[in-house]
């Protein structure tokens, strides 16, 4: 009779995780669910069909099935989002650890590098880089990670500096561990929750930026399908064929929401619950 409700899988976390996994599964299975080239022209007379049983989300001006293109477009968005997150997080964490823990001159130099990158207007940098060279997936990932790693680095630096003053870090140094071992085994594991939450948020934001670039025609080019690109193409038929813009827009919104929910859920799991217990966590 004194039972408590089940543990800390909050609604945010469950919903976010489900949506994220669903998105990954759909993107991974796109080639199997909708075989063939999503950019190949459809049969004549099939252009701009409204959603029906034959074409669940309708067809576009070139007679291509919107659902098929949506599935393939998801692959690009998720790939870009995850890849830039991984690059930005690894880079940001390494620089942030150095800027928080290294000897004074190194620390100051790394901090200056972070601030320098932060001072650059990131969006224009992205636009410039993408505009002067031929847009490709690799370049896009590079540009997106180079313009976002500083946030992670700042977070990691702040946390690392706080952890550096904690007693268990001093104790680890006192045991004779090298600075690298202390950073790797005692500081990094303790700021991993921060990095994970920031990473989940980063994926959603990157997907949003990627869609925006693709909408401007600066993203990956045909034959690769992107959600932003689909919206751009559908813009001409905004009034007579709403499904061309509505469904890719919805896909972007749901995907970004999913990663934000995941990040919130993770935050709750790491810090939200259990603080009340710590208050009297002394004896027993």
């Amino acid at each position: 009779m004194l039972r408590r409700p089940a543990p800390a899988w909050s609604l945010d976390l469950r919903l976010g995780l489900w949506l994220v996994l669903l998105g990954i599964a759909l993107a991974a299975a796109a080639a199997w669910l909708a075989p063939g080239d999503p950019s190949a022209l459809g049969p004549t007379g099939q252009t701009l069909l409204a959603p029906s049983w034959r074409h669940l989300l309708g067809t576009d001006a070139l007679g291509r099935d919107v659902l098929v293109r949506l599935l393939h477009g998801g692959r690009v968005s998720l790939l870009v989002g995850w890849a830039s997150m991984v690059v930005a997080t690894v880079l940001g964490t390494l620089v942030g650890l150095g800027a928080g823990l290294a000897r004074r001159p190194v620390r100051a130099a790394l901090t200056a590098v972070i601030d320098l990158f932060l001072a650059f207007p990131g969006v224009y940098l992205v636009l410039l880089l993408v505009a002067v060279s031929r847009p490709s997936l690799g370049l896009l990932v590079l540009v997106l990670s180079v313009s976002t790693w500083m946030d992670t680095a700042r977070l990691v630096r702040t946390e690392a500096m706080a952890l550096r003053d904690r007693e268990f870090v001093a104790a680890a140094r006192g045991l004779g561990l090298s600075a690298g071992a202390v950073a790797w085994r005692h500081v990094l594991p303790n700021l991993l929750p921060t990095v994970l939450v920031a990473g989940a948020l980063r994926i959603g934001q990157t997907i949003l930026v990627e869609s925006f670039l693709s909408f401007l025609g600066l993203g990956p080019q045909e034959p690769l399908v992107t959600w932003g690109g689909m919206i751009a193409q559908g813009r001409a038929h905004l009034l007579d064929a709403w499904w061309l813009t509505a469904f890719p827009g919805l896909a972007i919104a749901v995907t970004v929401l999913a990663y934000n929910l995941l990040a919130d859920g993770l935050r709750g799991r790491f810090w939200g619950e259990g603080q009340g217990e710590e208050v009297h966590g002394g004896a027993a």
């Binding site: 009779m1 004194l2 408590r4 089940a6 800390a8 009340g276 217990e277």
Partner: peptide
């Protein structure tokens, strides 16, 4: 204020 998942019997 027992942590979630704890089991508790009695009155």
């Amino acid at each position: 204020l027992l942590p979630p998942g704890s089991r508790c019997t009695g009155r």
